[in-house]
Simulated assay, not measured.
Amino acid sequence: MSLASRTREAVRSHPFLYDGLRAGVVNYTAAARFLDLGADDQDTVGQESDEPSVADAPEEAVVAALRRYAEDLPEYESDGTSARVSMESGLGDGDPADALLTVGDTALVPGGGQLTGILATGDVDATALAHVLTHLRAEDVAVTAAGVGGDALLVVVERRAGADAVRAVEAALETTPATGD
């Protein structure tokens, strides 16, 4: 496998780096060090370009591969969503027929527990959920459960984290990447 192919594969295995390349905010040298791809015997076979030799300078070759890959990626666009966010306190286990979220044998219903649900309704999808979960992780808000379906997105957190979670969900939905990215 060529160094360019290995670089692309390594970037795809680190979605934060993929998004950073698309957004144009990556320090290529630091990214090359992070990926630590090194050289491989096949990397020098048939190399006839102005790019650095992998054998002589593996880090510079990875930097060049990252630059070329970034040029090929679609631009990162953030269009946000038009979702309404609300908070539902007191979620707990209950009857699946009344649940806001059911996964496997767990059905979370209002009025019976110590959890808080942050519900976003409107223009939401799996991309929005992924973005919300990333924001919650960055805010150090632990998520107990999460799901998206139709025009609803729900994240469930401990009761005390409810207010922080609402703010993080609202911020995330304002900057959700355009669908299809």
Rank of each mutant, 00 (worst) to 15 (best):
residue 134 T to E: 05
residue 154 L to G: 10
residue 149 G to T: 04
residue 156 V to D: 13
residue 153 L to A: 10
residue 143 V to A: 08
residue 148 V to M: 12
residue 159 R to Q: 13
residue 151 D to C: 12
residue 137 R to A: 08
residue 149 G to P: 01
residue 147 G to D: 10
residue 144 T to L: 09
residue 128 A to H: 07
residue 146 A to Q: 02
residue 147 G to K: 06
residue 160 R to I: 12
residue 154 L to W: 04
residue 131 H to T: 13
residue 156 V to R: 04
residue 162 G to C: 12
residue 157 V to Q: 02
residue 132 V to Y: 00
residue 131 H to A: 06
residue 149 G to K: 04
residue 155 V to T: 13
residue 161 A to V: 05
residue 137 R to N: 04
residue 146 A to R: 01
residue 140 D to C: 03
residue 128 A to R: 12
residue 127 T to C: 13
residue 149 G to A: 15
residue 148 V to S: 06
residue 155 V to N: 09
residue 139 E to S: 13
residue 151 D to L: 14
residue 156 V to Q: 09
residue 158 E to H: 03
residue 129 L to E: 06
residue 142 A to R: 07
residue 139 E to M: 04
residue 128 A to W: 07
residue 149 G to L: 12
residue 157 V to M: 09
residue 155 V to A: 04
residue 131 H to G: 00
residue 138 A to V: 02
residue 146 A to E: 10
residue 154 L to H: 07
residue 160 R to P: 01
residue 159 R to V: 08
residue 153 L to I: 10
residue 136 L to P: 02
residue 147 G to S: 01
residue 158 E to F: 05
residue 128 A to Q: 05
residue 128 A to F: 10
residue 159 R to K: 10
residue 144 T to N: 00
residue 145 A to T: 05
residue 145 A to G: 10
residue 141 V to Y: 01
residue 135 H to N: 11
residue 138 A to D: 13
residue 130 A to H: 13
residue 141 V to I: 15
residue 134 T to W: 09
residue 130 A to N: 12
residue 148 V to A: 14
residue 146 A to N: 00
residue 145 A to W: 14
residue 138 A to N: 12
residue 129 L to Q: 03
residue 131 H to D: 05
residue 161 A to W: 03
residue 127 T to F: 06
residue 130 A to G: 15
residue 137 R to E: 04
residue 154 L to A: 09
residue 144 T to V: 12
residue 149 G to M: 11
residue 128 A to N: 10
residue 133 L to P: 01
residue 146 A to H: 00
residue 161 A to K: 05
residue 131 H to F: 14
residue 139 E to F: 00
residue 157 V to T: 01
residue 140 D to M: 04
residue 141 V to W: 09
residue 142 A to S: 09
residue 147 G to L: 12
residue 139 E to H: 03
residue 149 G to D: 11
residue 140 D to Y: 02
residue 134 T to S: 08
residue 132 V to K: 06
residue 150 G to S: 06
residue 158 E to N: 05
residue 137 R to D: 10
residue 155 V to Q: 09
residue 127 T to I: 15
residue 141 V to H: 03
residue 153 L to T: 02
residue 140 D to E: 11
residue 158 E to V: 13
residue 135 H to Q: 14
residue 137 R to M: 03
residue 129 L to C: 11
residue 153 L to V: 10
residue 153 L to E: 06
residue 135 H to A: 15
residue 131 H to W: 14
residue 146 A to G: 00
residue 134 T to V: 02
residue 130 A to M: 15
residue 128 A to L: 13
residue 139 E to N: 12
residue 137 R to L: 05
residue 133 L to V: 04
residue 132 V to D: 01
residue 140 D to G: 03
residue 127 T to G: 15
residue 129 L to G: 09
residue 132 V to G: 00
residue 150 G to L: 08
residue 160 R to K: 07
residue 145 A to Q: 14
residue 158 E to Y: 05
residue 133 L to F: 15
residue 157 V to E: 00
residue 137 R to G: 06
residue 153 L to G: 03
residue 159 R to L: 14
residue 162 G to Y: 03
residue 136 L to G: 05
residue 130 A to L: 15
residue 132 V to F: 10
residue 159 R to D: 15
residue 161 A to S: 12
residue 148 V to D: 03
residue 141 V to S: 08
residue 131 H to Y: 11
residue 131 H to C: 11
residue 162 G to F: 07
residue 139 E to P: 07
residue 151 D to V: 13
residue 136 L to Q: 03
residue 155 V to C: 02
residue 137 R to F: 04
residue 128 A to T: 14
residue 127 T to P: 01
residue 150 G to P: 00
